[in-house]
């Protein structure tokens, strides 16, 4: 057995940093887009239009019951079948958005359903349209209730973005694969990269926590008075 030598990874810190940046970029883009997709999908699922409800339901079930790896391959080869040759990064972002959209839809739906009937009736009495009810009454309260579930889903998304290495998007795991084949030090490489993922998920959780404090400030202040 050879001695462990972690310096081979740290010598290539520039590559590692680039990989981390791409992982963060993929996560942020997919989080933002996926959240919007999921929210609209949840609204569609609770709507009055039958076909839209079924469509949103099918989307959520199809995504939640198939592996991300297969979804990424399907987007990759599906788009190229349509004649579009997009970069691995664009394909990754699309696939991750589609994926996390379905999960956030389910979480947001649970949040929407948790709003008391009395509030909806009150809003209706005030003559608000359905859109106004969602925007002014439901959305923020629902978001606050499901915020912890939603953010852990986004952390899971960051971890599963590692799968994008399989279509050669040069994110952190792909960089690790390159370094280990370059240095023949797979154990050290994957240990370091694993720790970096732990660090990233920790940082992400802190960012979401601070963001939560900022977004839900008014309610927190109110609660202090009550």
């Amino acid at each position: 057995m050879t001695e462990l030598d972690f310096s081979v990874v740290f010598d290539r810190w520039g590559m590692v940093l680039n990989g981390m940046l791409l992982t963060i970029e993929l996560t942020l883009v997919a989080t933002a887009c996926g959240f919007v997709v999921g929210t609209f999908c949840a609204i569609g699922k609770r709507g009055r239009t039958g076909w839209l409800r079924r469509l949103c339901g099918m989307y959520v079930e199809a995504i939640r019951n198939t592996p991300l790896l297969v979804q990424i391959f399907l987007v990759y080869f599906g788009l190229s079948n349509l004649g579009l040759s997009l970069s691995a990064i664009t394909v990754s972002m699309t696939a991750l958005t589609i994926n996390v959209g379905a999960y956030s839809a389910e979480i947001m739906r649970a949040g929407f359903d948790s709003i008391e009937k009395g509030q909806l009736e009150a809003a209706e009495t005030l003559g608000l349209t359905r859109r106004q009810v969602y925007w002014h009454v439901i959305l923020k309260q629902a978001l606050e209730r499901v915020y912890p579930a939603l953010t852990s889903q986004f952390v899971l998304l960051m971890l599963s973005s590692s799968i994008c290495s399989q279509i050669s998007a040069e994110e952190l795991t792909a960089v690790a694969n390159f370094i280990q084949s370059d240095t023949y030090r797979p154990f050290e490489t994957y240990i370091v990269v694993g720790m970096l993922y732990v660090l990233l998920s920790f940082l992400l959780r802190i960012v979401f926590w601070i963001l939560g404090l900022a977004i839900f400030r008014r309610r927190r202040n109110l609660q202090a008075f009550i």
Binding site: T173, A176, N177, G194, Y197
Partner: peptide
């Protein structure tokens, strides 16, 4: 905090 893929590798 570690992706399953990295565990696998």
């Amino acid at each position: 905090g570690t992706p399953v893929l990295v565990l696998m590798f």
